[in-house]
Write a protein that binds this DNA or RNA. Structure first.
Lengths: 156, 156
DNA sequence: CCGCAGTAGTTGAATATTCAAGATCTTCGA
DNA sequence: TCGAAGATCTTGAATATTCAACTACTGCGG
């Protein structure tokens, strides 16, 4: 049980910075999203994933994976979205255990309405503050981390 | 009501990347922290802030600000930590509305035990994956964003 | 074709977070 | 010095998330 390699100043700055951005940026963007459209960040993410599919529906598992959610959370969440009339559950003919979540016309309308303001918020709070080089670097850094993390994370 | 400036490919990559890192990285690090030490990320953050103070205590408001928490959340959280014996509430002599949260010896011991493994997790999942240039860039980017965000975020 | 291990999804209880008051106390201007 | 406005912190209810079963089904080895 040897002494760990503590973080140096540079690393500490990046780590605390990331924690801060993580909280402040998403908190603010999500607050604005939800005020304007009544959609939580999680809801928005789910609706986007569904809308980007040709059939406007996805199997629950795939949807969970793509929206980085746990199965349980997604299940509760889809129930809520169903109550609101924005998503509909459909059964899967080829695998009777399976279920689809399908975006309704209403859901799509809500999403499209929310998207405009949301993009502007993201732009205002994130991209307007960074140089093109920084935006590029951020893309590289997160891509590197995420492809590693996907091999590591234990989900569910 | 003009058409918004949609995100271009570079921006979309950075934005989705950030969402992914945000979730995957912290989920994984927090899961490991909590498995090893029974501390949630929020608990750890609170204990760290207290431990870094000379008196090992802070006013609730200051603690909320430093740990980027809302007052309400912090209050509930400190109650929990108090039940566990890791934090103690103390009253403030100079302002009778005020309250301190103070780190107990037990709390400090738990924190120090947890810190070792936690630092190694952060290193393994974050810094070992990035070049020194990327670490530096990440520090710059988050510092820029956070100093802007602090002027903008509506907390509580 | 049987049985069993594993997959898909849901559920309910335990826990955590948010939201909107509420209870005290301080400050400051009239 | 009085009173109103604001600061500090807590509380309880509503909501969201996690965790550990549980149901129902598929697919595979024998």
């Amino acid at each position: 049980m040897t002494e760990p390699r503590w973080l140096d100043a540079q690393e500490m700055r990046a780590w605390r910075g990331l924690i801060g951005t993580n909280r402040l940026l998403f908190e603010q963007i999500n607050r604005e999203l939800s005020r304007r459209s009544g959609l939580s960040a999680a809801d928005y993410e789910v609706l986007v994933q569904l809308s980007e599919t040709p059939e406007r529906r996805l199997r629950m598992s795939d949807l969970a994976a793509q929206s980085l959610s746990s199965k349980s959370r997604l299940s509760h969440q889809v129930s809520r979205l169903e109550r609101l009339g924005w998503v509909r559950r459909e059964e899967c003919p080829t695998d009777r255990r399976g279920a689809f979540a399908a975006l309704t016309d209403e859901g799509l309308a809500v999403l499209e309405e929310a998207a405009k303001g949301h993009v502007e918020d993201v732009r205002r709070h994130l991209f307007d503050r960074l140089s093109p080089e920084q935006i590029h670097a951020l893309g590289e850094i997160t891509a590197t981390l995420n492809s590693y993390l996907e091999t590591v994370v234990e989900r569910d």
